[in-house]
Amino acid sequence: MNNLCIRFRDAILPIAGIIAAWQLLAALRIVNPVLFPSPVQVFFAAGEMIRSGVLWTDALVSLRRAATGFFIGATLGVLTGLLTSRVRIFSIGLNPLFNLLRPIPAIALVPVAVVWFGIGEQSKYFVIAYSVFLAVWLSTHHGMEHVPDIYIRAARSLGASRGLEFFQVVIPASAPHIFAGLRFGAALSFLSLVAAELTGASAGIGYRLEEARQYILVDRMFVGLVELGVLGATLDSIFVWIGHRLVHWEQA
């Protein structure tokens, strides 16, 4: 109970403080309230968006895109990471390509994706999956390459074959790295989501931001930003929660 109080205090109080400071700043009217809305204005804008239903549909549409893109990218990333870290010919052939692709931001791929896949859902999946894939591949590849030699030696001298050693030693030993990559990939899926939705979308949080820009409705933009922040933070804490249990021996 006491513990819960402390967690409540640590989580809620800073946010309440920030909102209070924000309200105070807006009430001073240093900046035009149309350009810098107060929390109360944002709250009312959100209420309006909830009543018209766009808040939920946007969130659902965006979450579905992020989840689909993440799933595709993460699956391919882990599988490719397994290949490039274990099979030499794959690492020789693919690592240079991936290292060239990594500095290219997801947003730069949007025009290409629209030409290739049209303005439908596929182009969004492509952009999100692309950025998730590279992050997950890199951490999987790195984690598998750096499995401590001592575990491999111990397993071999206890009679493990190479096939078994892969499943029973290499994968669990690199699981913390793979999981860190998945967590980073989840955050990236949100970043690239907005990039993908800024063009050629008719719903979603990114689209709503772009729409609000056209009507200069800054309060609605803020609703979108808060929505992204809350969804992203919730998703991340879910990943942390799973990670603590899945790779429970990593007492980081």
Binding site: I150, Y151, A154, R156, S157, P172, A173, W249
Partner: peptide
């Protein structure tokens, strides 16, 4: 190559943490 007929205890901790 290594084989279970030679048991090894290493200097660093080599127990599988998982």
């Amino acid at each position: 190559g290594p084989d279970p007929d030679r048991g090894v205890v290493f200097q660093d901790y080599s127990l599988f943490p998982w």
